[in-house]
Design a protein around this nucleic acid. Structure first.
Lengths: 314, 314
DNA sequence: TATTTCGCCGGTAACGTTTGCGGTATCCTT
DNA sequence: AAGGATACCGCAAACGTTACCGGCGAAATA
């Protein structure tokens, strides 16, 4: 059990005081080079590693970030997490990852857990039906560095980073319009999410202004299966020569539907999705997509976090 | 700043001692019901939450597990993590997630980080080129509960849980044999991994014993791109009417190749993969697969961990 | 009534660090 | 040679908890 290696028993073996050992290890100028060397050598030998709990208790400064996400197994979140982890490691931080299961109760439990663990900051993607505005406020007011991402609450003065929803939707819309389609079917996700609304607004606004004559049908689907069913039903009575998919989830359902319908892509119907590119690349031929990268968003979120930690407010 | 709420200032407001407050909060029989009530009410009001660092320093028992994985953004790992997280939460534990980037240096750094954070146990999937057998040994001997998963080292007395590699490969082989194929192309992953070797052995053993006459070509690919290239090259000179893919990664490359070659599935060539089912379900028609579930493996790993924590050795 | 039991609570040490403050020697200055 | 500056180091308190031990009054026993 080498975890028995503490400042104290290093100091005893060297017949010096604990404080000297502590300072030697952190290159304090008060300590002679000789002592420093001796201490460091012995520490290495004894595999000394500072007890982070003691350090934290003393300094009250933690080296771990909390990260709350509805589910981990999701293309977008996993790339986000991946990016955040990379940067965190760079800064000497480590990540406490919690999933809320998209449930608002466990979400606040997770928040509590983070607080309990005295994390240095929290990255959070709020649950779908969560509107704990007051709760978030309390954490912010208590000085907890909070960075919302992806799904964000309607709070003014807080850090939020979210995919460039409007931009992506706008690019998608203009691209589709450019191809001069006859009838466009656009499938979006859960209408209760701000991300959905942002995209839907930007998307339809572009159509209204730039191509008011193109018939645009907008539908909502909560899952791949629902998206699939929706397309199948739609095509029994009508036709569309383009389908827009707001997310990977929807794209998957749509692809299955087009296969069952025997539609050729892009001859019979063309498809455009908003995605990070992984799923669209799986199909043959590849589906064109407007990129939103969880990875880049993660990098951005971490930048926000460190800015915040360095005193920036907004 | 409500983190200023400690046992001490609860005790001061109530004019009782710190130890009484502490015991009241944990329902110690020595404390009267009246006092308990008062303490709990005030604690609730002051939003008291025990400082986990202090608790840990004192009790030396941590409520967090370390989890080391090559990369997070991977279908298999993410479902594994998801499962572990669920169970951990159930047990009141929380997860410290680190990625090694499949690099053996950062892998041992991660191990150190875990030790430094005094985690209660570590789940680890070792990096491809890592053979730090002595390092792992040291951790085990030091009493650190270690559960290896997926890729495991060649150590005898330790906890490992890995996908039922042999079984999956055997099932795959017998299935393929049953269909009476003329020529089978089997693509496996990195030959340095034990998972690859296990699968390859079981796979070819079945072919050797049950269908020695079927021509079997075995190849290795490290990535989707490589798998794709491999298939394209192979088909320029020869043909196969079945392709076996050891993993999702390989499957993706193979599918792209078959598309470029204009091969119909399953008419021209049939395909079988080992997977958790997500990727195979994306294609049309769906690719048949032998299931290995990261989720189930995660559940199993956690069971191992708690068994270990409860004193089980092997 | 005398003595034991028991319910309830406080004091205190300890977990491993960090840090301000103070205290020796040794050196340089004039 | 006397003074101050300098290099190096130790003491002790504190962070918030937990747990052992002991104490005091009241109830129960003898």
């Amino acid at each position: 059990m080498n975890s028995r290696s503490t400042l104290k028993n290093i100091s005893e073996k060297l017949n010096i005081s604990i404080s000297t050992v502590s300072r030697a290890l952190k290159n304090h100028p008060d300590i002679s080079d000789l002592t420093k060397r001796k201490v460091k050598e012995l520490a290495e030998l004894m595999e000394y590693e500072p007890n982070s709990y003691a350090v934290n208790l003393r300094t009250n400064i933690s080296k771990v970030f909390g990260l709350i996400v509805p589910v981990i197994s999701n293309l977008f979140y996993e790339s986000f997490i991946s990016a955040v982890e990379e940067d965190a490691r760079q800064l000497g931080y480590t990540l406490l990852i919690l999933q809320s299961g998209d449930d608002s109760i466990t979400e606040i439990e997770n928040l509590k857990l983070c607080k309990q663990n005295r994390v240095a900051g929290i990255f959070i993607c709020i649950a779908t039906h969560a509107a704990h505005t007051e709760t978030y406020r309390r954490y912010i007011d208590a000085g907890m560095p909070l960075v919302f991402f992806d799904k964000v609450p309607d709070i003014d003065s807080c850090n939020k980073v979210c995919p460039a929803d409007e931009e992506a939707a706008t690019i998608a819309a203009t691209t589709i319009i450019k191809y001069n389609k006859k009838r466009v079917l656009a499938i979006f996700g859960n209408p209760e999410l701000s991300i959905t609304n942002k995209r839907i607004q930007a998307f339809s606004k572009n159509f209204a202004s730039d191509a008011p004559k193109i018939p645009l049908v907008i539908k909502h689907a909560d899952s791949s299966a629902q998206a699939k069913k929706m397309v199948l039903e739609y095509f029994t009575t009508k036709k569309a020569d383009h389908i827009f998919c707001m997310s990977d989830e929807i794209l998957i359902g749509v692809m299955q539907a087009t296969y069952e319908l025997g539609l050729k892509i892009p001859q019979d119907v063309s498809i455009l999705a908003i995605s990070n590119g992984f799923i669209p690349g799986l199909f043959n031929p590849s589906i064109t997509y407007v990129e939103t990268s969880g990875y880049k968003l993660g990098k951005l979120a971490m930048k926000r976090m460190s800015d915040h930690l360095n005193g920036q407010t907004f």
